[in-house]
């Protein structure tokens, strides 16, 4: 066990972790955050996506050991069920989920796109989201939700 300090969603957490532990397991089992999901553990599906210093990463393959000075954001940072953030609200309004297992990863990935390009066109969205898998076929609604936020922020 190693003492590791993680900055997650704006709070510092001092945790006793195995030195080889990937971030996903620290988030889920030591911080009780449900958003990032185990999907493949291989960086192939994107269900575990979180932001590290504003960049999307597969938390299932990112060791906690290198994250001491980084800021980590999960889907929980975007809002709550009662007070959803803009992108979360768009996903709710567009019913951009079926089973929803991939959705937290989709939201985080989309959030990182909107932060660097607030008005992406559809082709950009499709290419950018290619790292994340959905099996239910909710892709079109996910795109709709992202476009909704991208369009709504026009003129701000």
């Amino acid at each position: 066990m190693t003492s590791t300090t993680l900055n997650v969603n704006g709070s510092l957490h001092e945790l006793e972790l195995d030195p080889d532990m990937p971030l996903l397991y620290a988030l889920r089992n030591h911080l009780n955050l449900n958003g990032a999901k185990y999907g493949c553990g291989l960086g192939q599906c994107g269900a575990c996506t979180v932001l590290i210093d504003n960049k999307p990463v597969f938390s299932c393959l990112t060791p906690c050991s290198g994250l001491e000075s980084k800021t980590i954001r999960t889907v929980e940072s975007l809002g709550t069920a009662d007070r959803p953030g803009k992108l979360q609200q768009a996903f709710i309004d567009k019913q951009a989920a079926q089973c929803g297992y991939c959705i937290a990863g989709m939201l985080v990935r989309a959030q990182s796109l909107l932060e660097r390009d607030p008005h992406p066109d559809e082709t950009t969205i499709r290419e950018y989201m290619a790292t994340n898998l959905c099996r239910c076929g909710t892709h079109l609604r996910i795109i709709e939700a992202i476009k909704h936020v991208a369009g709504a922020s026009h003129g701000q």
Binding site: N34, P84, A97, A104
Partner: peptide
């Protein structure tokens, strides 16, 4: 509006 989606988009205990 679907009952289950708000928790699923916000990291609620949904699964």
């Amino acid at each position: 509006q679907r009952l289950d989606i708000p928790a699923k988009v916000s990291g609620g205990a949904a699964f």
